[in-house]
């Protein structure tokens, strides 16, 4: 597209086009150029232009929550805040975004763009203000998980926050163990519904941090002894077996038992025929992935 002739009328015409077809990325670029031209003119304070443009986007985001170009344009607009406004005012703009993205995630708690956007906004705010927001973000994930224990997006974000949270808290070994225990307890609560796939993935993440090969920088407990590993594994395997008593038709239970057996055979020993029984139950319940279970059988030498 050619160099724009800019006026607020142009902006209105563009708005109409985009409201009909927000995927029209070239028009979004055109809008950027018009706005940049308007920024450099007298009489139109950039703050007002940006504020009204952000406003214009809100109904579009609600109507087309998965349109990449709208999110992308919003990020660009907020970047302009950093170049054209004073720091205080810029921070104010970014802070409003936390509220907006919170609302978007309440409407659709798994919206991919929404979670990515949230992390982007937080990162920018942390940089602008030179403060960490890891505590409040951690709390936010708690809130979202409490609302829906199968919200994998929130659980994922939480797993990324934990190492930072602990290091910024200067957490002692005791604190770290306490947090690990709390996370395990929370998952036990989630696994009251053992068909909750997200809870199993998060449980697997927690257990994987017990592995000797887990990256040191991301560890939850940093002074793990083999005796700790053994204690945790015994405890969790015991808890999973308890779930098994009420649900013998849930493949995730057998899958996790086999996974932990494969990863941590050095710390807990299970009789071979019990492991074999888990596997044959799994094969019975999940014939779609039979070749995968055959592979597990080979690895476990069953």
């Amino acid at each position: 597209m050619r160099a724009p002739e800019f006026s607020s009328n142009t902006l209105n015409a563009i708005s109409k086009l985009l409201a009909k077809n927000p995927e029209y990325y070239t028009i979004w670029n055109y809008r950027r150029r018009v706005l940049q031209a308007l920024f450099n003119r007298e009489g139109a304070p950039p703050a007002n232009l940006i504020a009204s443009d952000l406003q214009f986007l809100v109904p579009l985001m609600v109507q087309y929550p998965k349109c990449y170009w709208i999110w992308n344009y919003r990020m660009w607009l907020l970047d302009q805040v950093k170049t054209h406004l004073e720091l205080d005012q810029a921070v104010q703009f970014w802070k409003e975004e936390v509220g907006l993205v919170g609302k978007m995630l309440t409407r659709d708690e798994r919206n991919f763009h929404g979670w990515d956007y949230r992390r982007h906004v937080i990162l920018q705010l942390e940089e602008l203000q030179q403060v960490s927001m890891v505590e409040s973000e951690f709390e936010y994930t708690t809130k979202m998980i409490r609302k829906a224990l199968q919200n994998f997006s929130a659980l994922h974000y939480r797993s990324k926050l934990i190492p930072r949270l602990l290091s910024e808290r200067n957490a002692s070994n005791t604190d770290r163990r306490k947090l690990f225990d709390q996370e395990l307890d929370m998952m036990q609560e989630a696994l009251i519904d053992p068909f909750n796939q997200s809870a199993w993935f998060y449980h697997q993440y927690l257990m994987s941090t017990l592995d000797c090969a887990y990256p040191a920088a991301d560890l939850i407990i940093t002074d793990l002894l083999d005796s700790d590993r053994q204690r945790y594994l015994e405890q969790e395997i015991e808890r999973i077996k308890e779930i098994l008593e009420d649900y013998d038709d849930c493949k995730w239970i057998y899958q996790s038992l086999l996974q932990y057996h494969a990863d941590f055979a050095a710390y807990v020993s299970t009789p071979k025929d019990e492991v074999g029984q888990w596997l044959s139950e799994l094969q019975r319940l999940d014939p779609m992935r039979s070749k995968r279970w055959a592979h597990v059988q080979t690895i476990l030498k069953l």
Binding site: W115, R119, S153, H156, Q204
Partner: peptide, 16 residues
């Protein structure tokens, strides 16, 4: 990369 072995759009993003 993420603990589940997958990848996201940027560092920290969920696997897809």
């Amino acid at each position: 990369s993420n603990a589940d072995g997958g990848y996201g759009t940027v560092p920290g993003a969920e696997s897809h």
